[in-house]
């Protein structure tokens, strides 16, 4: 589950700076460096999704970051931001695919997207997103606040939380605490979930 950026933090920061400065070559280099690793991260992390769909989601996330680099604020890893963004896009694609097969999509099950999302939610938290403008606002203001200063493992845990993963073992795995007793794992995971939910609520109020 745990994966690493193909670039060093310094290289990421430089690429982000060039995206923001409208260097015409920067979007191409972003794609060249991140497309395969990002899609493969999704394949590993979301085993049930097929590989072409993972590439579609990775592509969408890279398009969005290239066109709106300001959505990833300084200090947040491009890699972690892209993983979060691509995960959201993948969930939307999967739901759209299911919808095409005839199952109706309930509003509750639609996730955040810059294109046509309806809500961002965890089991304890929910933000309605009725319009594209609202989705853009969440991407620009809310996610950066939520992600700021979170450790990579915490960002991966947030990803699980938004995916509505319930198993403590999945959180323990990304946090690297599987060697602890189950009781201790549950306490640590509960504390982290509380922290992440509180951060989401604060971001909603501030964003």
């Amino acid at each position: 589950m745990k994966s690493e950026s193909p670039l060093t933090p310094e290289q990421e920061a430089e690429l982000h700076r060039r995206l923001a400065a409208r260097d015409p070559v920067a979007p191409s280099q972003l794609a060249k460096h991140f497309l395969d690793p990002l899609a493969q991260h999704l394949v590993r992390a979301k085993g049930e999704a097929d590989e072409p769909m993972c590439y579609d989601a990775a592509t969408e996330a890279l398009f969005n970051l290239s066109e709106r680099p300001e959505t990833c604020i300084s200090g947040v890893s491009l890699w972690n931001y892209l993983c979060m963004s691509a995960s959201r896009d993948l969930m939307n694609l999967r739901r759209k695919a299911k919808s095409k097969k005839g199952s109706a999509i309930s509003l509750d099950s639609v996730e955040l997207s810059s294109q046509d999302g309806k809500c961002l939610q965890t089991p304890d938290f929910r933000i309605e997103i009725e319009t594209k403008e609202e989705a853009d606002r969440v991407r620009r203001h809310l996610l950066p606040i939520v992600l700021q200063d979170l450790a990579e493992a915490e960002q991966q845990a947030l990803e699980l939380l938004i995916d509505r993963v319930k198993e403590t073992s999945r959180y323990a795995e990304v946090l690297g605490i599987t060697q602890l007793s189950l009781d201790e794992q549950e306490k640590i995971v509960k504390r982290l979930k509380d922290k992440l939910n509180a951060r989401l609520k604060r971001a909603r109020d501030e964003g």
Binding site: P24, P27, A31, K32, T59, E67
Partner: peptide, 20 residues
Amino acid sequence: MNAALREMAKKAESRPFYLA
């Protein structure tokens, strides 16, 4: 030949942001 990158370039044809 990176087929994935070429596929991404093809998708970029519908986005005026890109040279594609």
